[in-house]
Design a protein around this nucleic acid. Structure first.
Length: 726
RNA sequence: GCCGAUGUAGCUCAAUGGUAGAGCACGGCUUUCGUAAAGCCGGGGUUGAGGGUUCGAGUCCCUCCAUCGGCUCCA
């Protein structure tokens, strides 16, 4: 006997083996029709599952329930897969889970799907929905199931089955079993039938590696989403479109903040005057904090010897993500030419023209290089391109040269090491807006959020082991201050731990010690954070502040990292109170992370409407006509002298057009100057959000705005009714 | 780096394989106006670059470059 307790407190009883669907039908056919799943004792179950000999709490779930919607999305993935298989029978299905906001299905298909195929697929899906076929689960013993899958010849599904837990394998037929209907290996659960999946849409198709392995065959990943009804689906699509209006690349272009120029190079940012204002204002904000917190500014060069980065472990550890070394004599250029020449015709039997030229230069230039190359295996017999390339590569790796700096810490460590240090000096906090260069993969470069040259608001703190916890907590505090000041409250904190893997340097004990210190610092700062194994820096664990961009991608901004390894590599020391040498601990920290990425996210955060203290232009002085132009010029000059970033619009446009232009540029204040203002020696203040604040004397206005700026307020000056929205 | 899509004036976009266009922006002139767009006129292009097919290419094909979306990576 099954006893079911319903949400309204009612209890009903059913015989053993009753399905959830039957229970719901007994309550009411309307409910059974509307429900797609049920929650049984808190667990989401599909309606064809049965109960026996139990007492449960049961709640019917419609598509408006998140768990039920998740289920429907998974079911939609099946419907889509069936449609694709129907249209392209050679399709091999791989894996099709629900994800945040929708679902995808990975397929292996030679025909490259394009958005033009989507309507056909959707049409087919609609037909499957119309047939309203049940999702029927059946289970077979593991061995039999494997046999069946092997016979079907889809290696991916065999692979999936091998990874699945349990003694049985489950399949879902879209229809009655043994009816020839489409079926798929799947652990479920599903909605009752194809007619219940809701409103769906295929969104995009993209490449994806099988099991995330770049060495394996690339699959096609078809993305889609499902909502309870068409209206909600459309609302979701509209919301995506709306979010795209915040895109920093779009706003950066519209407001003239920065530009990315193919001639300058991929991922290299040109800050235009208006964007530069935002950046240097943020820099100055931090500088003020650093003074208060006992940091000392330093400056270091943009390149440094390979020896430096060999010592730190950056080279050749991250060789592939660095710009190639710069060599300090003709050797590099020559080796490069020789390399190019050997690449040119790798399979040639003899020397090609390029190789011959290079070899000629080899003789002319420096017999010693030729000798060195030969000892590295270089052959001048021709047709040995691979061997020769290896010789050149080896020689390049062994040569001394300079690297565009990928990180600031090695240079800061050399500053620390440049004089003897006492425990009385610690902690030493060296700060620099340090520009670094990393050769990010071409497919990764993205607006301001992922670039190849960027500036970190970097600092390295050298301290005694017992200072670590406090210093880290202070760094976390500074990062939170920065985010709070800008009203960025939508972030999460992640502790990156070592985990397994071979990409980390240093002794296990040091790591354990460091990871404990990080945990204690987070606790001390009273923050909630998730831990992620394998997300540490290569030299130590870290605390990352992570935010989302306008299309939901995660980006790391601020970071606090602890490093027991590099002080060892650079043999950093201090003299303790016991008059013996000790090893300092180093903390890397950057509250913004990279100025580029931070500004990118900030643009999206404010949708380009920066608070006054950050706004590129803080006020636009607009004359109504020629009669008020002279006074408008006075107002402009007075504002500028008071330190306000102000612009003058004395053109012959109408006042409405001037206001419109300033408003579209998101200038916080428009000062309308007409004959009334001339007469009253005043300014009429309007905000970008359309609020009219009335007339101020110039000193009144300057005073009010100066205060707003000094306080770094996030809202504009207000009328009596309250703050004008940003 | 991989898969796919895209690339036309400063910006947003048109243009059956058959004379490259519009709006905004920009320049000139007229207008001097009170809270989100005055009017007229004008200048702007090796259609991302280079090859190919064709009588003829923005349009079809190839290579490269750049951008976008995923994947992978991210000190």
């Amino acid at each position: 006997m099954v006893t079911v307790r319903l949400p309204d407190g009612r209890e009903v009883q059913h015989p053993d083996g009753v399905s959830l669907m039957q229970i719901l039908q007994a309550i009411g056919p309307g409910l059974a029709k509307a429900a797609v799943a049920a929650r049984v004792n808190g667990e989401t179950r599909e309606l064809f599952s049965t109960l026996s000999n139990t007492t449960v709490e049961l709640q019917a779930l419609k598509l408006d329930d998140p768990a039920a919607l998740q289920m429907a999305r998974h079911s939609t993935a099946h419907v889509m897969a069936e449609a694709i298989c129907a249209l392209w029978p050679q399709t091999k299905l791989v894996y099709g889970p629900p994800v945040d906001g929708g679902f995808y299905y990975d397929i292996d298909l030679d025909h490259k799907l394009t958005p033009e195929d989507f309507p056909r697929i959707e049409e087919r899906m609609a037909a499957i929905v119309k047939e309203d076929r049940p999702f029927t689960r059946y289970e077979v013993p593991r061995d039999a199931g494997m046999k069946k899958l092997v016979a079907e010849g889809n290696d991916y599904k065999v692979d999936n089955a091998q990874r699945a837990d349990g003694d049985v394998l489950s399949f879902y037929v879209t229809g009655q079993p043994n009816s020839g209907c489409w079926e798929d290996l799947c652990k479920g659960p599903h909605v009752p039938s194809t007619g219940r999946i809701g409103a769906f849409k295929i969104l995009q198709v993209a490449g994806a590696y099988h099991h995330g392995d770049a060495n394996k065959k690339q699959l096609q990943r078809v993305y889609g989403t499902t909502f309870p009804d068409k209206k909600l689906l459309q609302a979701h699509l509209d919301q995506i479109e709306e979010a795209k209006k915040r895109d920093h690349r779009k706003i950066g272009q519209e407001l003239g903040l920065f530009t990315l120029d193919a001639m300058v190079g991929t991922g290299l940012v040109l800050w235009k005057p208006r964007g530069a204002v935002i950046r240097y204002t943020l820099e100055n904000f931090i500088r003020g904090e650093l003074v208060r917190r006992g940091y000392q500014p330093v400056y270091t060069p943009h390149i440094g010897r390979l020896e430096l980065y060999r010592t730190s472990g950056h080279f050749p550890y991250y060789k592939d993500s660095q710009y190639p070394p710069i060599f300090d004599n003709d050797t590099a250029r020559f080796l490069n030419d020789l390399w190019e020449a050997t690449v040119e015709r790798k399979d040639a039997a003899g020397f090609n023209a390029g190789e011959q030229r290079a070899l000629q230069r080899l003789d002319d230039l420096d017999p010693e290089i030729r000798t060195t190359l030969k000892t590295r295996g270089f052959s001048d017999e021709g047709g040995k391109a691979d061997r020769n390339q290896n010789a050149i590569r080896t020689m390049l790796a062994e040569s001394d040269g300079y690297l565009l700096k990928p990180m600031n810490c090695p240079m800061h460590m050399r500053i620390y090491g440049s004089e003897p240090r006492s425990y009385r000096d610690l902690p030493i906090r060296l700060a620099e807006f340090g520009t670094v260069y990393r050769y990010e993969q071409s497919g990764e470069v993205n607006g301001l959020t992922r670039v190849r040259g960027f500036t970190q608001d970097d600092a390295h703190l050298f301290c005694t082991p017992d200072q670590v916890e406090q210093e880290m907590a202070d760094c976390v505090d500074l990062t939170r201050l920065v985010l709070k000041t800008l009203g960025m409250n939508d972030y999460r904190v992640r502790i990156g731990l070592r985990g397994d893997g071979d990409k980390f340097i240093g002794a296990r004990e040091d790591w354990d010690q460091a990871e404990e210190a990080v945990r204690r610092a987070v606790k001390k700062a009273d923050m909630s954070a998730t831990e992620a194994a394998g997300e540490a820096a290569f030299y130590g664990p870290k605390i990352d502040f992570i935010v989302k961009d306008c299309i939901g991608r995660d980006w790391q901004l601020g970071t606090v990292q602890i490093d027991y390894n590099n002080p060892k590599r650079f043999n950093l020391r201090y003299i303790g109170d016991d008059n013996a040498e000790h090893r300092p601990v180093m903390i890397h920290r950057a509250p913004f992370g990279s100025l580029e990425r931070f500004c990118g996210i900030l643009i999206e955060h404010f949708e380009g409407a920066f608070p006054t203290w950050l706004a590129p232009v803080q006020a636009a002085v607009c004359s109504v006509s020629e009669k008020s132009e002279a006074y408008a010029r006075d107002v402009f000059a007075l504002c500028q002298q008071a330190g306000l970033r102000v612009e003058l619009d004395a053109s012959s446009e109408r006042i409405g057009a001037k206001i419109r232009r300033a408003t579209l540029e998101k200038t916080p204040y428009v000062l309308v100057i007409g004959e009334q203002e001339v007469a009253g020696r005043s300014v009429n203040v309007r905000t970008r959000s359309g609020a009219q604040l009335g007339n101020f004397t110039i000193p009144e206005f300057l005073h009010a705005v100066a205060q707003e700026i000094a306080e770094r307020r996030l809202t504009l000056l207000a009328t009596a009714s309250g703050a004008a929205p940003g």
